[in-house]
Design a protein around this nucleic acid. Sequence first.
DNA 1: GTCTATAGAGGGATAGAC
DNA 2: GTCTATCCCTCTATAGAC
Lengths: 202, 202
Amino acid sequence: MTGNGKPRGAYAKTAARRREILEAGIEVFSSSGFRNGSIRDIADRVGMSQAGLLHHFASKIDLLTAILEWRDHEDRERLDLQGQPKGLEAVRSLLELVEHNSRVPGLVELYCTLSAEATSADHPAHQYFIDRYRTVVGYAVESFELMRQRGELADGVEPASAGRSMIAVMDGLQVQWLLNRESLDMALELRHHVQPLLTVDL
Amino acid sequence: MTGNGKPRGAYAKTAARRREILEAGIEVFSSSGFRNGSIRDIADRVGMSQAGLLHHFASKIDLLTAILEWRDHEDRERLDLQGQPKGLEAVRSLLELVEHNSRVPGLVELYCTLSAEATSADHPAHQYFIDRYRTVVGYAVESFELMRQRGELADGVEPASAGRSMIAVMDGLQVQWLLNRESLDMALELRHHVQPLLTVDL
DNA sequence: GTCTATAGAGGGATAGAC
DNA sequence: GTCTATCCCTCTATAGAC
C-alpha cells in the first residue's frame, strides 16, 4: 500500500518521533541558540539518548536544517511568498503573521536568536537567512510598489524604504517583546507604524 | 603621585593590557556570541595564554561586564541619556549614532548578537538588556512627547508608539545590514522612517 | 604578570549490542 | 529503533612555578 517493502506502522512511528524531536529542538535552539544548544538536551526532552536522536537526524546541522525547512513550510502557508505580488492584502497578511507570532513565543525566539547568530559568516544558517531576508523584504517591497501604482500610498513614501522598514520594525519589536512581553503589543505597534504610510484603511 | 604604593608604570601597562583584551573580547563575542565565544580565542588574539587573560579579568562573565560597561560609557557620550529630554535634538543624535555605527560594524554585531542571546532569562546579560531597552526606548518616547507639545509631530502620531518603533527600526535594520551590508544605508533608511512623522525638517 | 599543567564538565559523533 | 560505551574534542577555572 505504501509502495515499498516496509510496513506503514513503523514509518508512522518514526515520523511521529522526528516530529517530537523537531519540536524539542525548536525549544532548545530558541533559548540557547544553535551553537550553544546541545542535542543531548534535546534528546532528554523527548526521553531519549543522544545517540538515539542521531538515528533520526544524522547530525546537529541536519536537525537545524529540518527545523528551518519545516518552519518555512508553515510560513509559506501564511504568506504565499511565491505567487503574484498582492499589495494591501500582503501587508494585511504580514499583520496577521505578527498576531499569530504573539501566540507562539518559542518560534519568535527561535528566529530572533538564530538570525542574530547567523549574521556570522561561518554559521551553518548564514546563507539561509540571507536568502530569507531577500525573499521577505522583496515580498514587502513589491507589495508597496503595487500599492503605489494603485494610489494607496501616502505622498513621499518610497516603496523600497517602506518595505525594508516594515520588516525591520517587525524584527525590532520582537526583541523588545521577548525582553518584556508586557511592554508592548507587536501587532498593534506594527499597525501604528504602517497605517500612516497608506491612504486607505488597513 | 598616584596616591598609593604601586608604581605608575605597572598600572599603565596593566590598563593597556586590559584594553587590548577588551577589544579582542568585542571581536570574539561579536561574531561568536558570548556563550559560544571562548576566552581562549580572545587570549590568542592578544598573544597571551588563557590563564594569563584570567589574571586581568577574573572570569568570562567579568570580561563581558567590563565590555558592556565600557560600551555604555561610549554611548552616554553620544546620547546623554541622563539629562533633560531633548525633543528633536534627541532624534538627531540617534540618527548620528546610527551613522557612527555604520563605521563600526563590530560593535553593531556585538549588540545585535548579545541582545538576541540575552532574551533568554538565564543569560548573564539578560537584566542588562532589559534595563538598556527601558532607558533607550524611554529616551525616544520622552523626546517624541516633547515634540508633540512643541507641535513638531504630524497628526495621529502617538509618542509612545513612535518611540518604540524608532528603536525597533534601528535594531531591525541592523540585522538586514549585517547580513548584507550593500543592501541598505541604515542612517538613510532611518531618516526615511522618521521624517514623515514630523512637521519639521530633520 | 605570565606561563604550563591539570582538573572537571560538557559537547558531537561513532561502534556495536540488543 | 534505541541503548551503552567510548573517543576525542573544547571549554572555564584553578594551582603553582617562574
